[in-house]
Structures are given as C-alpha cells and as structure tokens.
C-alpha cells in the first residue's frame, strides 16, 4: 500500500485531536502548552502534505516554517509567564492559580 495524502491528513487530524484533548483535560500549564504544540504541528503536517501531493509549489512548506518559528517564540514567552506564575503562586496548576472569580 502506498502512503498518500489521506494518510498524512489522518495523522494531522489525530494529532489535532490529541492536542485539543490535552488542552482540555490537563491542569498543568506546561502540559497544556504541549497540547498547543501538537495542534501547531498538526497544521504543519497538513500544510506540507497538501503542498507536496496537490502540486502547489512551496507555499505550504514556507508557511509551516513560519509556524515552527512562531511556535518557538510562543513557547519562550509562555515558559517565561509560567515561571512568573510559579514565583507568585508556587504552583503551575492553572486551576489552583485562580484568584479571580465571577
């Protein structure tokens, strides 16, 4: 069986679902951020697969490089914010660090 576009799309969709699940179910801020990375990588797989199999040139691959760079920047800022949260609350649990209520 030859590996085609569908396989990559299914892989992307699975990664997206796992990322969404991690974001919703995890309480630890770091694990939530890992879920977000999974979503971004799911998008990357889609973009690269589409541009490779639909003969769309390099557009999708260029976008995926930008997404990788943004993911790095986002992770750097997010870790700084998590560190600051830890300094203030002595926890990285986003449910415990919840002082503002309706």
């Amino acid at each position: 069986m030859e590996i085609g576009l569908t396989h990559y799309l299914v892989l992307g969709a699975i990664l997206f679902g796992l990322g969404l699940f991690a974001m919703i179910s995890r309480r630890n801020a770091i694990l939530v951020l890992m879920g977000i990375e999974l979503i971004l990588n799911a998008a990357n797989i889609n973009l690269v697969a589409f541009s490779r199999y639909n003969g769309l040139g390099v557009d999708g691959q260029v976008v995926s490089i930008f997404v990788i760079i943004l993911a790095v920047a986002e992770a750097a800022i997010a870790l700084g914010i998590v560190l600051n949260l830890y300094n203030n609350f002595a926890t990285v649990d986003i449910d415990e660090a919840n002082t503002m209520k309706d």
Binding site: A43, E74, N84, N88, F89
Partner: peptide
C-alpha cells in the same frame, strides 16, 4: 501574572486552531 497565563493559553490555543 495569572491573567497573563490565561491569556497565553487561550490565545495560543485559538491561533493554533
């Protein structure tokens, strides 16, 4: 610091989607 945490989680999630 709590608000920054919430902001980056929601922001990163929705831009990922």
């Amino acid at each position: 610091s709590e608000s920054a945490m919430k902001y980056i989680i929601y922001g990163a999630a929705s831009s990922g989607i």
